[in-house]
């Protein structure tokens, strides 16, 4: 029996920078029969600062939200679409499951009787179930025939392996398997787990600049026509800074890259026949509607 009920942890991006992710995910979820309910009174996962401030804070912030989810939804897996939220929630869960003493310590911090029984999932995991995949296939009405897509996981979703462990940390393949169901053709490329520099964009902007460029360049070199991500921060960074990367390329006399960046759920939604304005692809910095439409027009209506 496939898992279809999820507790939703929005984090700071789901209703802001990552709106397109949430919209497209919900669009797909609705058609696949997922029940996604927001955790009441959730709080910040700690982002990149909590666990650096103190280990206890790094455990307590996510644990509180997870405890609230457990109190409301029991064992339902907690869905965190943002890779940063995912890793923080997951880390607290792994810490709590290390030993009864650890769980007691964390429970003491949050003043709740959290049992750490529910799983924490990223956006890809609900689609890894074979049953969900066959349902997904049957919903594809406008296949993205032949769309060459580079699946980008970023650095946070698969590492460290003892926290994430949902896929290989150097050569993950889940997104490839999911997107191939939409008719798209994932390409083999080398930078799927490279850091995009998102967390450096405020502090060391100059150092992170080339990071976006080389990821997109590697994807283009591998023949990709589009990049798919599963993290709002990766998306924001790649999508927003592609123009900047192109300016740098222009200085070196290189032609601009024309690589739209999508959430993988946008591509699924597109293959389901979703209209551009209801599945988020109109919200991008780099024009993204045309590529999808071109791919869809190649597809045969099933």
């Amino acid at each position: 029996m496939a898992q279809t009920q999820f507790a939703f942890f929005p984090g700071c991006s789901a209703h802001s920078t990552g709106r397109a992710y949430t919209e497209s995910f919900m669009y797909v979820a609705e058609r696949l029969g997922f029940e996604v309910s927001e955790i009441p009174e959730w709080n910040c996962c700690g982002a990149s600062a909590g666990h650096l401030r103190s280990h206890d804070l790094g455990d307590a912030l996510p644990a509180r939200s997870l405890a609230l989810s457990e109190e409301t939804f029991g064992d339902r897996p907690v869905l965190a679409l943002c890779a940063g939220c995912y890793i923080n929630l997951r880390r607290a869960l792994v810490h709590a499951r290390r030993s009864p003493e650890d769980l007691a310590r964390i429970d003491g911090l949050i003043g709740r009787e959290w049992k750490a029984s529910a799983e924490v999932m990223n956006g890809l995991e609900p689609f890894m179930d074979p049953e969900v995949q066959s349902r997904l296939s049957s919903c594809v009405t406008r296949p993205l025939k032949g769309l060459k897509v580079a699946c980008y996981y970023g650095c946070a979703m698969v590492r460290p392996r003892d926290v994430c462990a949902f896929d290989d940390d150097e050569d993950p393949r889940s997104m490839e398997r999911i997107l191939s169901l939409t008719g798209a053709e994932p390409v083999e490329w080398s930078f799927k787990t490279e850091c995009c520099g998102a967390s450096h964009q405020v502090i060391v902007q100059r150092d992170m600049k080339p990071m976006v460029g080389r990821i997109l360049e590697n994807a283009a070199a591998a023949g990709a026509e589009a990049v798919a991500t599963a993290c709002p921060l990766c998306m924001l960074n790649l999508d927003m800074r592609e123009a900047e990367a192109n300016r740098q390329r222009a200085e070196l006399g290189k032609p601009p890259l024309r690589l739209p960046v999508y959430y993988f759920t946008e591509l699924i939604a597109a293959s389901f026949g979703g209209k551009a304005d209801e599945i988020g692809i109109k919200r991008h910095f780099t024009p993204a509607v045309e590529t999808v439409e071109a791919a869809r027009s190649q597809g045969v209506v099933a």
């Binding site: 290989d168 940390d169 150097e170 050569d171 993950p172 083999e188 080398s190």
Partner: peptide
């Protein structure tokens, strides 16, 4: 084992 070395590709 070594996806980062191309896993034989």
């Amino acid at each position: 084992l070594y996806g980062e070395y191309g896993a034989g590709r």
